[in-house]
Design a protein around this nucleic acid. Structure first.
Length: 213
DNA sequence: TGCCAGGCCCTCTTTAGGGCCTT
């Protein structure tokens, strides 16, 4: 069965749309089964001013944003691209609030399940000292290109992290494939329950899920 | 110059507090 996921990352002018922050850049990475099949990013002009420390963090200047396509166009295209596919983001509550705020402004619904790579990684890798995206992709190193804190680079890192987490589950718990509902449930239980859950889930699904003994 | 949000999650908890993570 084909499984498609859309990994998203936003760069913004601040931490919260409730405080007036708007997105300045969006990136999307499409994963089909266990492969990254395409990537895209676009700056966008929402007419919001980025503070100096944000420009320093992301490298995205107000001049760059002024020359970018309008936020409505970029967000409508993103809505069409995502459709009903599940969405993955690192610390998804952050990206979700901007996604929902911008789409709500345009009268567009969020029809997707939203999954959080940060929450899953905390359950799978409790021994890791930091679950920041930049730290996780070094533990051990994953493919990366571009600059951290740019949307596409971060979305690609998140995609590689997601694929590694599903591969690790498949390897350690002998799954032939890792269903999305397993990942969804995994992020909603406590860290202490994770291993027990992964083992019991395999049992409930039956022997056909085993890759071998 | 220093502070700003919100959700998650752990613990010296649950009638709370504080650290982590995102820009």
């Amino acid at each position: 069965m084909t499984q498609t996921l859309i990994v998203l990352d936003f760069e913004t002018t601040g931490m919260s749309p409730d405080q007036g922050a708007r997105p300045t850049e969006a990136a999307r990475v499409r994963i089909v089964n266990d492969s990254i099949v395409d990537c895209y990013q676009s700056l966008m002009n929402a007419g919001a001013h980025a503070p100096r420390f944000i420009t320093k963090l992301t490298g995205i200047t107000n001049a760059m944003v002024r020359e970018a396509p309008g936020v409505d166009r970029v967000m409508r295209e993103l809505h069409e691209f995502v459709g009903r596919h599940p969405v993955v983001a690192h610390n998804a509550s952050f990206d979700r609030q901007f996604l929902e705020a911008e789409w709500l402004r345009l009268g567009l619904p969020l029809a997707s399940t939203v999954l959080c790579s940060l929450r899953v990684s905390r359950r799978l890798y409790p021994e890791v000292p930091s679950h920041r995206l930049g730290a996780l992709v070094e533990y051990p190193p994953l493919p990366r290109r571009g600059c951290s804190h740019r949307a596409l680079a971060d979305a690609e890192m998140t995609a590689h992290l997601w694929l590694r987490m599903t591969a690790d589950i498949a390897w350690h718990f002998r799954y032939r494939e890792v269903p999305l509902d397993l990942m969804q449930q995994l992020q909603s239980i406590s860290r202490n329950q994770a291993v027990t859950y992964l083992e019991s889930y395999r049992g409930r699904r039956g022997l056909t899920e085993f890759t071998g003994s």
